[in-house]
Simulated scan of single mutants.
Amino acid sequence: MGKVYLVGAGPGDPDLITVKGLKTIQQSDVIIYDRLVNEELMNHAPKNARLVYCGKSPDYHVLKQEEINNLLCKYAKDGCIVTRLKGGDPFIFGRGGEEAEVLARNGIPFEVVPGITAGSAAPAYAGIPLTHRNYSSSVAFVTGVKPKGYHAIDYWRHLALGPETLCIYMGVRNLPHICEILINHGRSPLTPVALVHCGTTEEQQTVTGTLEDISQKARGISNPAMIVIGEVVRLREEMKWFEEMANHHEFQTPAVSG
């Protein structure tokens, strides 16, 4: 029997993977990795490691989740050390919980290696602190896709006057609807909003506005993007350190090393 590591690769910048996550890559026989994983990390895999791409975009899945689950079990039962490499954190909208359930039911040893989720990293690189003593003492990570078993209006109604900061994954397509519902259920139309596209990478782009106008301003923004809603977005103008670094061509951060 082998072993499976469910590893968070971080939000995009390869330097943001954890030390333990890097070690699992270096010892792997098989690496099964997602679309949002920076492929530079594959350079640290053993030369004879099998690399299996199972990327998922909103409209297309190379492999269905059941097929991924079956591969994890198959390779582990063949005696392999398997790294399931997922963008961000495997247990935050990464379906890592479902994979862990399957492994547990099949008696396969596994470990979870948490990663830095885009919900915290993308705003940080955009100069937006999710909490701040003067602006927000609560934050919620939520999905922009209606959860099964919930009515969409009820889902957003509960969030409208709840946490002061909302970080929304997978919400670009539904952005106009999300803004409309939040306003209808009590959030001020003037609540600041930011969209951060490809956060932590050189392709990062940030657009800001309010609930009433962000849908128009962000028309050119596509997935992957994080949506941040709340007063903390106001701090971006004085804290946008990543753009300042980009303007001075200071992207040369130390490469990941083993």
Rank of each mutant, 00 (worst) to 15 (best):
T83H: 03
V193L: 00
G12T: 08
R133H: 08
K217S: 04
K77F: 07
G149T: 09
R35L: 11
I214V: 12
F242S: 13
T253I: 09
R219T: 14
G10N: 05
Q205P: 00
R50K: 15
P14H: 02
N247I: 07
T201W: 01
I181P: 01
V19W: 03
P163T: 12
N174P: 00
E101H: 03
Y33E: 04
N106R: 13
G21L: 07
L72K: 11
G88P: 00
L159A: 05
A45R: 10
E203M: 11
S137R: 14
T208I: 15
T200I: 07
G94S: 10
A76S: 15
H248W: 01
P192G: 05
E98T: 10
F242I: 12
D13L: 07
R157A: 13
V102C: 01
S136E: 08
E212W: 01
M245R: 14
D34S: 02
P176G: 10
I168K: 07
Q216M: 12
A225R: 05
I17C: 06
G119I: 12
N184L: 09
A100M: 00
I181F: 00
Y53P: 06
L211N: 00
N184E: 15
E250H: 12
C80S: 15
P147V: 10
Y5S: 13
N134H: 11
K77V: 11
P224V: 11
Y155Q: 08
P14K: 05
G162Y: 06
G186V: 07
G107R: 06
Y53L: 10
V113K: 06
F91C: 15
Q216E: 15
K146Q: 11
K146I: 12
N106D: 13
D29S: 10
S136P: 05
V139H: 03
A152F: 10
E67M: 04
N223Q: 06
H44K: 09
K64P: 00
I116H: 04
P254S: 12
M42G: 03
A104M: 12
A152D: 08
Q216S: 14
P109A: 10
A255S: 11
R105C: 03
A104E: 14
P176Y: 10
K77N: 15
A255D: 09
N70F: 09
P90N: 14
N38A: 10
K47Y: 00
A246H: 14
F91L: 15
A45W: 09
G10W: 03
E40T: 14
E99Y: 08
N247W: 05
S138I: 11
L195G: 02
P14A: 03
V52R: 09
T143W: 02
R50N: 09
L36P: 04
K77P: 01
P163H: 13
F91K: 13
V207D: 06
T200A: 05
V112A: 05
K74Q: 15
R84V: 07
V193A: 02
V207W: 02
A49D: 03
D59W: 02
T201A: 01
T210D: 00
I68E: 03
T24N: 03
V19R: 08
F242V: 13
L36H: 08
N70P: 02
P224I: 12
G162P: 06
S257G: 01
L36I: 11
T208E: 15
L6A: 08
K56I: 11
Q26W: 01
R173V: 12
V232W: 04
A122P: 06
V193P: 00
G88A: 05
P109D: 14
W156A: 02
E250G: 10
N43W: 01
T131G: 06
I108W: 02
